[in-house]
Design a protein around this nucleic acid. Sequence first.
DNA 1: TCTTATATTGCAAAGGTTTGCGAAAATGTT
DNA 2: AACATTTTCGCAAACCTTTGCAATATAAGA
Lengths: 331, 331
Amino acid sequence: MNTKATLKNIASMLGISISTVSRALKDHPDISNETKKKVRELADLMDYEPNAFAVYLRTNESKVIGLIVPEISNYFYHSFVAAVEQEARKKGYSLIILQSANDAAVEEANLKLCKLNRVAGIFVALTSETRDMATFDRIKSSGIPIVFFDKVPEDNHYVKVCLADREVGKLAARTIFDKKKKKVFALFGNPNISITRKRKQGLVDELKKLSPFVEIATATANNTEEAMQATLDTLSNKSKPDLIFCMSDEILTGTIMAINKKGLKIPKDIGVLAVSNGFIPKICNPEITYIETSGAVLGKKAMKTFMEVLEKGITKKMDVIESKLVEGGSI
Amino acid sequence: MNTKATLKNIASMLGISISTVSRALKDHPDISNETKKKVRELADLMDYEPNAFAVYLRTNESKVIGLIVPEISNYFYHSFVAAVEQEARKKGYSLIILQSANDAAVEEANLKLCKLNRVAGIFVALTSETRDMATFDRIKSSGIPIVFFDKVPEDNHYVKVCLADREVGKLAARTIFDKKKKKVFALFGNPNISITRKRKQGLVDELKKLSPFVEIATATANNTEEAMQATLDTLSNKSKPDLIFCMSDEILTGTIMAINKKGLKIPKDIGVLAVSNGFIPKICNPEITYIETSGAVLGKKAMKTFMEVLEKGITKKMDVIESKLVEGGSI
DNA sequence: TCTTATATTGCAAAGGTTTGCGAAAATGTT
DNA sequence: AACATTTTCGCAAACCTTTGCAATATAAGA
């Protein structure tokens, strides 16, 4: 390994001072063109890159964003992550990605890690176990902006970017009503998280409002496996529902497996309506009708909000993404 | 914000020197238990965390790993990412995740970013466009270990972790032969990457060896869309194949969509055999028979290899993961 | 020629940590 | 009591960059 490419080495090789080199490289007006040229040439030759750690240490501004999700390998989140990564790069940021494995303790450890890495900001989707927001509050008050997305806290003194969850529920209700379904089995995720409650409320309330004659049964499942089991149970009843509503891709996956296992045909034997980003619905036959929730769109919005927070020092805000119905052939 | 939690502040508050505080916190034998206790208590109280950047600057050892994939939101990779993240955390590392969007230029930019962030090491799955390994070589010779996974370079002077691609092809061939299929349409990904070539070779050669009577046609597709189109074209021929082999989940997705569009039934009208991590095969009806390739397993292996490289300074190595057949009902 | 303004450059401190080495204090040994 | 050991701690340099301010050189003006 040759001499390391540092300001110091460049300076000594050129017989000028470190500060001159530093300024030359950032095109500071104080430096003569001649010197700039010399410096740039040698810097290029040596493949100089400023030491990000030293820069941070001096400027106290890191260009890394922490991103904490319950699980990356999950339907919605990886498209969110992909979008954020892309947007972040455009702004010169990189991403440190952490998974909380739906465990509040791991989530806390991850927060620590973010703090330790002095990230410029943190994006978080809460676990369903998260009760205590104290750590978040501490970090926030230590000056690191936090943007919550998707699984957000209910209090409104945070910066949040999420889906119009209640509207999602309502839209589902209206679809069910329009399609004249009479007996609905609605399957939700973990009841602790706010999006579950909101989607459920939206669905149930709106459905009641639209018609007193639609029967609705609800259940919750924490993962695909449970969703499959719950669906199997329901389908074994003497009086089957005529439509199953699935709150998420995770749930939908389990439901589809169950329906397949039972040998039932969609939509002849049973209808399916899901909330999804569309990937799974589109590989089914017939395609599943779904209410679209795009991780990519949410990701872009989240990054935009983050930049605003950074620039304007906002501490509370709630951005909401609208959803729309995408018709397949499953109802 | 109170006084910042730094060694300096702790030292001055306790009336001792910075070095004593530093050593006390890492349980250095030179320091008396009494002092250690005092220091620890105040440090806890102040919520002290060492400044990672300063530590790095001093020690030249960062605890961040760079991970570059063509796309996160893709079938195989996000489970790989998830696994690596988990293993990395156990070892005290965090992950910076970058996407190369299957663009060699972006890949290069990402490499730069890794270098700039002085990562401890880099995991890379090459894009199908990557021709020039010069940047990789430069980084490697600058002392940053690189572990290639899945889409690896062919030269054997790199550290690689990959699937037994040729074996995957052979296993597919044996399966096809066992199931007595006569007319195979094999759909592969981008022909530039080595795994495509290897899988194809394995399949074609083995099939020839097993029986001269099996007809095989091959095609390539760069994405789901192209795979669907290619499948549609084949299925429109007067003489349909009796089995379609899909090299990856991406391809499989397109093929399934095409089969659905055509209204064909699996396995009655056509058989399907895929290489997959199992997720998509399991939500199909009937479940698709596939040769398993687990991103999670590969991820664990990659992390293990990385630690070896770090500790023993290995510069060339090739780890291979075996695969097995998982029977569904699609053949 | 002397002053004043302008264009260039260098000095040095700061940011927080680690660590080799030397200093001081405590303890042990005759 | 004099010396040797051991225990405990502090000094200061180094890692690399940024930046306010001072310094020097050059050009312009009188």
